[in-house]
Design a protein around this nucleic acid. Structure first.
Lengths: 173, 173
DNA sequence: GGCATATAGTAGATTTATCTACTAGTACAA
DNA sequence: TTGTACTAGTAGATAAATCTACTATATGCC
């Protein structure tokens, strides 16, 4: 499963709790992967079972314990093996484009609203990405520069989407 | 399920067999939805159960019968209700970007190969889209123009990906 | 004081999607 | 004549993802 390898990759950056991971998936990893909370915890449990990660329980004074997950040597090996394996086929599923494809069944107003909603989303996404990029310090090491390049990919696509919206709104008023 | 509504949309264009639908998902609908053959047939069966589509069996002379699926009045209503409902949240999952994010664990050669593979894919996709666009006659009706705009979206993103690759290969040789 | 939000995690069910392996005939080419 | 690819569909298992609903505590706000 790809999710398990992404989690290993994140744990290789720093030991984390399930909650920490969820925050990563909602911010820095948002442009390439989404993960449900339940799925993250389940996957972590499996990684521990397989010996690819281990748990250090940090007792919360009163508060619930934190289970800090740390990648093991075996985990690092599994991560690297995955990175060297053939890239999984990728087929995007975009509910907006699906609607666009059949939008002839919509009234002109409803159609314009559809495009407006997409624009709002794309703008929010672009703002999110640019905030992330601004937060990042200058890229010194190769790892950071690669993560920034991944972010640049999200920015490029968000901008492409906005340009396409400009054109489309002109073409199909 | 979104897939069922997309299938209704395609059936609204013309009555089709499961096989015909599969071909659509692999060509004209490829930039926004992928569907497994088994999933298509299962979904068709459900649509018939729900009265949203009906089957006309076309006996094959010797060859297996074709089950032509035709959208019903109820099916058209369901399609339009879906189009008017709020757009489903969309979170893309891109295995390539996931690897890119952790590519510091790769050797420089393996990293270059990763980018080269992505470039090949993007070029093939762009060629596929441009072939589709060339095949299409001039857009006269609104429906065709909307489908062409959907295609233009795919083209815009394929081009954005190629530009990003150009930059990234310069930035991270 | 009461409420919302963030932290941290668990449990179970259901829905979707994918994988594998079949049947069966047609068309075409080496 | 054997093999490959295409058309058309079925069956069952497994994997992955999502939804819903819980338990707790801490922190800050009005």
């Amino acid at each position: 499963m790809i999710l398990s390898r992404i989690i290993l990759g994140l744990l290789a950056l720093a030991p984390m709790t399930g909650y920490d991971l969820k925050r990563h998936f909602d911010s820095s990893a948002r442009h390439f992967w989404a993960a449900d909370k339940a799925q993250i915890y389940r996957t972590l449990a499996r990684l521990v079972e397989e010996g690819l990660a281990e748990i250090e329980v940090i007792p919360g004074a009163g508060a619930p314990n934190r289970q800090l997950h740390r990648i093991t040597t075996g985990g690092r090996a599994a991560l690297e093996a995955w990175l060297r394996s053939p890239v999984e086929p990728h087929a995007d599923r975009d509910p907006f484009l699906a609607r666009m494809f059949f939008a002839e069944h919509l009234s002109p107003e409803a159609f314009r609203a559809l495009l407006a909603g997409r624009r709002e989303e794309a703008e929010a996404l672009l703002a999110h990405f640019e905030r992330l990029r601004a937060e990042a310090a200058e890229a010194t090491d190769r790892g950071t520069r690669m993560r920034l390049a991944t972010l640049a990919n999200g920015i490029a696509h968000a901008r492409a989407e906005l340009s396409w919206l400009d054109e489309t709104e002109k073409e199909l008023p």
